[in-house]
Design a protein around this nucleic acid. Structure first.
Lengths: 362, 362
DNA sequence: TTGTAGGCGTTATCAC
DNA sequence: GTGATAACGCCTACAA
């Protein structure tokens, strides 16, 4: 066994330190917190006593007194999602660097649950919050969050009814450019896979998609927009491929949808269909063909959010920031496939700019 | 703006509720905590006052008084790793179901940092800890953790010097079976990719690999064991493929290594090399060929750990549990490729049991 | 069944 | 510069 002293270890308190150092409690408190000046010799004695006893301030008692905890809260609906996992890692790193604990709270999928969680966090006197609002339920919640309240930064999606900093990616532009990229290859029938109208990001990406079509003079066809439920993976692409005027290209709405698309294409043996993925994913560059992606940077998102939050916590005052992070198109092959002209197609579409062969193993 | 009352919202306390209900503080406390009996009409009045004021107990004050917080701590070195992300999600779900907050602390990569973090967590009076010990540094740390101290469950790797519950996967067996699977296809030169001797799991998997070789009468060749640093991805496989007696099959040590292998094979255009991945990954079944994996279940790991922890927190007493989770071999194609006999190979190895063609797109 | 006094460990107020 | 003393919000004695 280890060299633990017999009996209860008895965590030392300010009083113990004070007794050992022969000073008052308050003096120890001063030394610990570095507030006001303490005479050098006194301070030294206190430091020594602290070291001897292995004293550490009790964060709970401190929080009770000061009304704030050395922690920030992070509310994400699902940390299993690789995107949020990477974001969370960045937040965790920045928080621990700032000496703050990270209290992680999953909000499930309901607005009520989310508000309850946020309230719980506020009750713990967290210094600030980073929130991925699962639903736009802050409208009338009457929470004192954001500017004028407990510092808060909304991430990935905005929250209605709250003045607070927001960090988003440029979903519309990302959707636009991904679509424009496919249009430039000559595609006119581009399916949008994995939509979920209730989700802000996907709605925005769809908006970008529609705008790009519009700018190219292609009529929007709602039949080419397919939702993705985890259960429907097997038949995911049937609706857009098995028809008289099938889609010749696919744009997925997020990484989860992308992986479903990859699986589906693989299963039906149609790797030659053009495909751009919104979101990068680990093996995207090792597939056949390698997958062209519109890449966002979750780590950057987490860092930006935490930076803003820490500035707010430090007391900086500035108008609500709206950070819009870029989306980068990374051509890898799958998105540069030109449409195969289906038999009896009415006309040749715009000239494909380039055509990269699909690597086929010997 | 919302219907916030003018002036400071002033979080209501027990006293406010007591005043409104016309009872004593203690009575309110009793109602809130459900301890001892309170007369029905009194209780009703109190409940009403609570509702009217929107009172919520202050968890910090409660923690200070009771010496415990309604939270558990989770220490993982990197939550960005998909494996730990999935595990964390399971833990988070179970914790919130039990009404506990999850305090997440990244430990970086140093034993000192990890111990500091654990100490910090203990100081916050967390109810329990789930730890992925980054280094086996608990030996002489003298922390009152585990049996007889603050409930703790070690996950993924054991911790020396602590009596505590542990949840591991059967790494040796997983490594053994993956290797045996390749041996059964006739492979004799099997490379082990992504080793890192300082990591428990990888060491164990390597052990399983060696045992399987031994049982098959194949001499272990240390040159076929290659470490994986993130920087060396480009030339990862050179050492085992570019030689007179090259490896004909690969076994990767974990998901990160697997993805590196997939990329490397893709880059050098050698998809026909047999490959088994330790750990599943999202697109494993959509690659060409689909990747055979030895699959572990991170969610199950998180759930098992939390279950144990909650039982400890509830006061159950039982000898330290050592849960060993299974690893399942999932044949998908890449692991069922027989060796191509290199020119001048001395002899034909054991009969391949089955040979599945590599799907090649037309 | 209900109320009163005291303290958990800390910081804030005010004297010295 | 330093030290008593009173909170912070809650819960655990014990008394009524």
């Amino acid at each position: 066994m280890s060299a633990a002293p017999s009996g209860a270890p008895a965590v030392p308190t300010l009083r113990d330190v004070a007794a050992l150092a022969g000073v008052s409690i308050k003096t120890v408190s001063r030394v610990v917190n570095g507030t006001s000046d303490v005479a050098a010799p006194t301070a030294a004695r206190v430091q020594q006593a602290i070291a001897a006893l292995g004293y550490r301030p009790n964060p709970l008692a401190r929080s009770l007194r000061t009304g704030r905890d050395d922690a920030i809260g992070l509310v994400v609906e699902s940390i299993g999602d690789p995107f949020f996992a990477e974001m969370t890692e960045a937040v965790a790193a920045a928080a621990s660097e700032a000496g703050l604990f990270l209290i992680h709270a999953g909000a499930g999928d309901s607005a009520d649950a989310e508000l309850a969680v946020v309230r719980g966090l506020l009750h713990r006197s967290v210094r600030g919050l980073i929130l991925v609002p699962c639903l736009l339920a802050y409208e009338a919640a009457g929470l004192s969050v954001g500017i004028g309240g407990v510092p808060a930064v909304f991430v990935d999606r905005p929250a209605a009814g709250v003045r607070a900093d927001t960090v988003l990616i440029d979903n519309v532009r990302g959707g636009y450019e991904a679509t424009a990229h496919l249009l430039a290859q000559g595609h006119r029938r581009i399916a949008f896979i994995g939509t979920a109208p209730e989700r802000f990001t996907l709605r925005k990406r769809l908006e970008g998609y529609r705008r790009a079509l519009e700018d190219a003079g292609v009529v929007f066809d709602p039949d080419l927009v397919v939702p993705h439920h985890r259960t429907s993976e097997a038949s995911l692409l049937d609706a857009v491929l098995a028809r008289t005027d099938p889609a010749t290209a696919l744009l997925s709405a997020n990484a989860v949808a992308s992986i479903a698309v990859v699986r589906a294409l693989h299963r039906i043996g149609r790797p030659e269909i053009a495909f751009v993925s919104f979101d990068d994913f680990p093996t995207a560059d090792a597939l056949t063909p390698p997958v062209t992606v519109a890449r966002q940077d979750p780590g950057l998102m987490g860092r930006s959010a935490t930076d803003l939050l820490l500035r707010r916590i430090a007391g900086e005052d500035f108008p609500p920031a709206e950070v819009l992070l870029p989306v980068t198109l990374v051509p890898r092959g799958s998105g540069e496939i030109a449409p195969t002209r289906p038999a009896g197609s009415p006309e040749s579409p715009g000239t494909p700019r380039r055509r990269r062969a699909v690597p086929t193993p010997a």
